[in-house]
Amino acid sequence: MKNWKKIAWSIFAIGLVSAAVILYFATKKPATAEDSEPVAKFSTTEFIEKLNANQAAVTATYMDKNIAVTGNVMEVNKNQCSLVLDAGNNAIITCTFDSAVFAKHAATFEKGKPASIKGIYFGCDGFEKNDFNDMMDLLPQQKSAMMKTCSVNK
């Protein structure tokens, strides 16, 4: 009888732990740049130069990682909670924020002024000949690196 009780309690305990683990992973929020420290810091031009030199290597090293970039603010889009940083040579870095994080820092973002932003890097694209070939006769070719869940890097 005692053995049965032990087995029942063990099954219950294993079930409880499994449920807790499943619940944890199912409800775990995605990592944001706000809650972590960047693994690398660059100027915006430096980061674009790295991408121009070897995009595959940058993807392998920094994809889905928190990185920080510093450059001049080109656009502040309050409605979309995003910033566009100038990276020189027809290149930009697009930084998108959670609305609450953006609201916290919005007053410090000024067009033409420098900003240091950390965010999760998720790719580099922009207006490129291969994708926008029908309209490229007038559209300036523009490389755009993208970061999400951004915050100000202090």
């Binding site: 992973f25 409800t27 775990k28 929020k29 889905d64 998720f122 694209d125 029908d134 999400k148």
Partner: peptide, 18 residues
Amino acid sequence: GQMQFKIMNKGFEFWSQL
């Protein structure tokens, strides 16, 4: 009226990591 869109799929943000 010509129009184009491009979306990087990895840029989608969900409430859950899973």
